[in-house]
């Protein structure tokens, strides 16, 4: 197990280093942030001073060397936009996104597993058809469009919920509900498909022949074995939210990491972009590790 984790960590670290190098140079090719931050009538001296302050005067390779040197001392650079350490800015935003991801994914997982299992139990029944149809619609819907429609209906017309921002429990309902829909549709389909396979297997037939009741068959015999493919999809979907639900966060003015990334790219706040990439890469690595551990717990035959 330890060597397995080591190998995975190494592979992730290599691709992260590649990504950081790529983003470092690509993002600096997008242009000089000076004009974005200084007023139009700024003098040449002011511009030079600004460039000097943030080190944009040196050749790219020198800038990169300095960045790596700082990194090795645990310094991720400063945000130009907020004039404080980039890592602080990123961690603050990541906290919001993490909370959002945890709330959404726990609701999605619970709902998809219960409804998917029940649908699989009577394939072709009324419940199954309704569940399948809604999961297909959910998996097909563009989330930004649902977000807009939800704002019009619940915030603008009915005045039940706030349109954007954070602050109270009510602010969380719309983002969570909108983020819920797509993963719910996808995971429900996987639960249903996997459950149908499992329920047709020999040990479920044996259990049924022994007279075990319906509910234990689904949730004890079936679920544990049906969970492996489901967990993979849950991981993918959680990663998508952690990577920044950019569109949803932008629409709802949610101060998460997705919104932070896109704002920082547009305003060429390079240090923040790089720190954000590193934090979300680490989060996704840890999550994949958790999923692998979950595999091993669910299926004792899996050994790493």
């Amino acid at each position: 197990m330890n060597s397995f984790i080591g190998k995975r960590a190494l592979a992730s670290a290599v691709s992260l280093v590649g990504l950081v190098i790529l983003v470092f140079f690509l993002s600096r090719l997008t242009g000089d942030p000076t004009n974005l931050y200084l007023p139009l009538d700024a003098t040449t001296e002011m511009r030079d001073q600004f460039r000097e302050l943030h080190g944009f005067n040196d050749p790219l390779i020198v800038q990169f060397g300095r960045y790596v040197g700082d990194l090795l001392q645990g310094n991720f650079g400063d945000s130009i936009r907020q004039a404080r350490p980039a890592m602080d800015v990123v961690l603050e935003a990541f906290g919001w996104t993490l909370t959002l991801a945890v709330i959404t994914m726990s609701l999605v997982t619970a709902a998809a597993i219960v409804i998917g299992s029940l649908a699989a139990f009577k394939v072709g029944g009324v419940f199954d058809r309704i569940a399948t149809f809604f999961s297909l619609v959910g998996a097909s819907a563009p989330d930004f469009w649902i977000a807009i429609v939800a704002i019009v209906v619940f915030a603008v017309n009915l005045h039940w919920l706030p349109t954007s921002g954070t602050g109270s429990v009510w602010h969380w309902i719309l983002p969570v509900a909108v983020l819920f829909i797509r993963p719910f549709g996808l995971i429900l389909q996987v639960v249903r498909g996997s459950m149908i396979t499992v329920l047709g297997s020999a040990y479920v037939k044996t259990a049924r022949a022994k007279g075990v009741r319906t509910r234990p068959i689904i949730f004890v015999h079936g679920l544990r074995n049906a969970m492996l493919p489901v967990i993979t999809v849950i991981g993918d979907q959680a990663a998508a939210i952690l990577n920044g639900a950019v569109v949803i966060e932008t629409i709802f003015g949610f101060p998460g990491i997705g919104k932070l990334m896109i704002d920082s790219i547009l305003l060429r706040d390079f240090a923040v972009v790089l720190a954000a990439i590193m934090v979300s890469a680490l989060a996704i690595f840890l999550m994949n590790l958790l999923i692998d551990i979950a595999y091993a717990i669910l299926d004792p035959r899996i050994r790493y």
Binding site: V137, S140, W145, I148, V149
Partner: peptide
């Protein structure tokens, strides 16, 4: 959809129809 966003409060149809076109196409593909 994005162009219709500023007019959401008084003209919902600007964003609604193109979104519906997207949803119907992806649903059909699925």
């Amino acid at each position: 959809v994005s162009q219709g966003r500023p007019y959401l409060t008084n003209a919902w149809w600007l964003s609604f129809w193109p979104g519906l076109a997207i949803i119907l196409t992806t649903l059909s593909l699925n």
